[in-house]
Simulated assay, not measured.
Amino acid sequence: MIVMGDPKSCCSNRGEARKPFDLKFPVGFAQIPQRLQNFFKFKNSLKDEREVAPISPKEKELCASSVEAKLEKQLNCWTENPTWVDQPPELKVTVPKDSLCNLHLKLKVGLPPDAIYNIVINPENKRVFKNIKEVISRRVLVDEGPRQLVEVEQAAIWRFLWWSGTISVHVLVDQNREDHTLKFKQLRTGFMEKFEGCWKVEPLFVDEQLCHPFKPKTLDEYNSCTGGKGRVGSILSLEQLVQPAILPPPPLSWYLRGITARTTEMLISDLVAEAARIRGNASAANSSQKSETSENTSNGNTLQAFDVKERWRHRRNARRRNNRELSR
């Protein structure tokens, strides 16, 4: 499954002091709707003690512009050199006690982290991920600029062998562009007792060999040693725990475990295809630009050749006129 956030979330490097996250609840907290209780429990379970001051719309716009400018610069490097060979993901499934499975996945993708992150959190990513049938509801509960808490309910499609069906997924999503993480946790228990996990996107220095013998450790060092020409890819990782309310015995548990793994593989396959489409567009734009440049160069050479011929013709005519004048 994939959970959706907001593509306009952006990083914030403001120098303001961050205060510890301190929630003070009124005496009548027990009367707060169950949904908000789940929300606060989830925030505590994430063990995030930071809170940023509210960000104004103008600051959000400036921050989004900064992210877009950085991403555009990184994509330009892919436009100049879109060569990339996709590798199969590293997928490992373990079976903790009293759980169906714990899924660990790692994959290298030929696009910058912000581009991958935009795909994952986009509310309209149903276009990319075919296992999303529909988004039933989506609500932003907290918007701190770089970090958002979003409540999402969607109908997801599962397929395994010749069987298929849909399942409703209602989760709370904590997405943070500063570290390109997306944590999700189930809000309502039903068929699933636990459904939680975390997506994380880290930078991959594709052209690291340009820095040899120096080995860059940060993006700034990488940009410095490559002169800003090094391509930045992504290392995408996923940790996901699935625990049904009632753990079925084998072979039914094997069957459900296969559905979970297969659904995740579908998500990754769709993500890789979208990344390839974006690189293909970059390659097509680059080819078109080269073709146009080649055509202009060719026209220039033709005009230059035409000018040479004209000069020789004028010289021949001048010699003939001189010869006729001398013969008189």
Rank of each mutant, 00 (worst) to 15 (best):
K183C: 13
K183V: 09
K183W: 06
F184H: 05
K185V: 05
Q186G: 08
Q186L: 15
Q186N: 11
L187M: 14
R188T: 14
T189I: 09
F191T: 10
F191Q: 09
M192H: 01
E193A: 10
K194W: 00
F195S: 01
F195M: 06
E196W: 06
E196V: 02
G197V: 03
C198G: 04
V201Y: 04
V201C: 07
L204S: 14
F205M: 08
V206N: 00
D207F: 00
Q209I: 00
Q209Y: 14
C211V: 03
P213D: 05
F214H: 13
D220N: 15
E221I: 00
Y222E: 05
Y222F: 13
S224V: 14
S224A: 15
C225I: 07
T226S: 11
T226R: 01
G227N: 12
G227Y: 06
G230I: 00
G233R: 05
G233E: 07
S234W: 05
S234N: 02
I235T: 11
L236G: 05
L236M: 07
L236T: 06
S237F: 07
E239I: 04
E239W: 00
L241G: 01
L241W: 01
Q243N: 14
P244R: 06
A245L: 14
I246H: 09
P248W: 04
P248L: 05
P250T: 07
L252N: 07
S253Q: 03
S253H: 02
Y255A: 10
Y255Q: 08
A261D: 06
A261E: 10
R262K: 13
T263Y: 01
T263S: 12
T263K: 06
E265W: 07
M266D: 13
L267F: 12
L267V: 15
L267Q: 07
V272R: 02
V272I: 13
V272W: 02
E274L: 06
A275R: 01
A275W: 02
A275M: 02
A276G: 13
A276N: 15
R277S: 12
R277C: 10
I278D: 04
I278Y: 04
G280L: 10
N281H: 13
N281P: 01
A282Y: 06
A282M: 03
S283M: 11
A284S: 13
A284I: 09
Q289V: 11
K290D: 06
S291L: 14
E292F: 11
T293S: 11
S294D: 15
E295V: 15
T297I: 04
T297G: 13
S298C: 13
S298R: 15
G300S: 12
N301T: 10
N301D: 11
T302H: 02
L303T: 12
Q304G: 12
Q304C: 12
Q304H: 09
A305V: 10
A305P: 07
A305M: 15
F306D: 09
D307M: 12
D307A: 15
K309F: 14
K309W: 08
K309P: 00
